[in-house]
Nucleic acid binder design. Structure first.
Length: 428
DNA sequence: TCTGGGGTCCTAGGACCC
DNA sequence: TCTGGGGTCCTAGGACCC
């Protein structure tokens, strides 16, 4: 049995935890730079506020309904997420954190111990609510895809009230019949349209297709989804939590930038993020994509990217920053109004099976190749300090000039959980 | 006045080579 | 004179998710 637990409009719910005055009001949260709406609380959803629309286009609607608008407060969400995940972890023996607000659960040593999954789901919900004040949906299923479907039912279909269990034919059919095909995990609008043409409208219709034929006509991924909907596990646990094949860090700037130093500082801080994530999953980076661009909405869209290949795969942030340094002059062009930049690790290899050096140290000057062990100890220390005191406590000198490109966050809530000055006060 | 997210994976098609 | 295959690698862009 698998479970998927996730929060109801997580960012918006997180905003409501520490501010009781907005709990009964419609709330939306914006993406970086207050660009788009990325979370809509249930009250706001009922007013017809759409997700992923540019904020400035929808501002009038938000004002009309007196909607509370918040910028993304990642420090807050990360803390709230940690708390939530810790509570959930107590209810299973294997948890995979799939995103900031979603985790898959497994119950390997619970065989026969849980008599009533429905009841168990409500226990999880109640505990999370009591300890974090976050509303969650809990879906159980015999495959990861069915757990996802059950989670959808728990939150979106009437009559489920936060918990759904797909462990028999009757509920499987009931839930899949009530789900649009595009509500199935992995079926987006594009594929949905093609399937509609074939008369496949509900998740149940999709489950009736011949997996092999659909696989030939569309893709292996679709074949897998069909099998999973029929209770045949294709995504085993290791696949669900497989190491990432690419790791990107990209961001648009709060204000346009024009100078090479600002660009360098932004790219360097992206290196720090990518390096940290690579080390987290024990990967080494062989190729790093580095890019900078104007806005695609501009008249003369400009984008330059370069792939830097390391002689020897590395997970060292300093080596990544060196790559940026060496590549930057050929990416930067004076006069361009830069809107966005980023770096991405493209070719990742396992740190466990690192290829050794044929011609060590003396033949090269690259930082990642000299004294590898020293650098890996340095990075471990760096990660530990930043984990304990917060990301950004230790920075490369190159990333410090941030004032020019910091993102716009005009509606930021206080750092309730990460700043002594902003801790909520209770007045008696 | 101007404003338009971010991450991951996959694939089609082009460039290049023999 | 005209026509012709197949592999690898890279890139841009699409699809999907939250």
């Amino acid at each position: 049995m698998y479970a998927l637990v996730d929060a109801v409009s997580f960012y918006a719910s997180a905003e409501k935890i520490f501010d009781p005055s907005i709990r009964q009001r419609p709330v939306v949260v914006l993406t970086n730079n207050d660009g788009c709406i990325c979370a809509v609380c249930p009250i706001a959803r009922r007013l017809g506020i759409p997700k992923f629309k540019p904020y400035f286009q929808i501002k009038w609607l938000l004002e009309k309904h007196n909607v509370v608008v918040r910028s993304s407060n990642y420090a807050l969400y990360a803390d709230v997420s940690d708390k939530m995940m810790n509570v959930i972890a107590r209810y299973c023996d294997n948890q995979y954190i799939y995103s900031i607000d979603e985790s898959f659960l497994q119950f390997n040593h619970y065989q026969g111990l849980i008599k009533n999954w429905h009841h168990y789901g409500h226990q999880i919900r109640t505990a999370v609510w009591k300890e974090t004040r976050l509303p969650v949906g809990v879906g159980f299923g015999t495959t990861p895809t069915l757990a996802k479907a059950a989670n959808h039912a728990a939150k979106k279909l009437s009559g489920f009230n936060g918990v759904a269990v797909v462990d028999n034919e009757l509920t499987r059919k009931e839930i899949l019949l009530r789900m649009a095909v595009t509500d199935v995990w992995g079926i987006g609008s594009r594929l949905g349209k093609k399937l509609n043409v074939l008369g496949v409208r509900s998740a149940w219709d999709l489950a009736q297709l011949n997996a092999k034929q659909a696989g030939k006509q569309f893709s292996v991924v679709l074949a897998r989804t069909i099998n999973e909907l029929n209770g045949v596990t294709c995504l085993d646990w290791n696949e669900v939590k497989a190491a990432k094949k690419e790791i990107f860090s990209t961001r648009s700037f709060g204000q346009r930038i024009f100078d090479i130093n600002s660009l360098k500082s932004a790219l360097t801080s992206h290196c720090a993020v990518v390096g940290r994530k690579a080390r987290q999953q024990s990967s080494l980076i062989k190729k790093l994509l580095i890019f900078a661009a104007s806005s695609p909405h501009d008249n003369n869209y400009y984008k330059r990217s370069l792939v830097y290949e390391f002689p020897i795969a590395t997970d060292n942030t300093l080596a990544l920053a060196d790559a940026v340094q060496s590549v930057l002059p050929s990416i930067f062009q004076a006069g361009i109004s830069y809107y966005r930049c980023g770096v991405g690790a493209l070719e990742l290899t396992s740190a466990q099976y690192q290829q050794g050096e044929l011609f060590p140290v003396s033949l090269n000057k690259n930082r990642n190749q000299s004294s590898n062990s020293n650098n890996s100890a340095l990075m471990q220390c760096y990660d530990r300090i930043n984990q304990k005191y917060g990301h950004g406590t230790l920075q490369l000198a190159g990333e410090t000039q941030q004032n020019k490109w910091q993102m716009r966050r005009a509606f930021l809530s206080p750092s309730y959980t990460s700043n002594w000055q902003e801790i909520p006060m209770i007045k008696c």
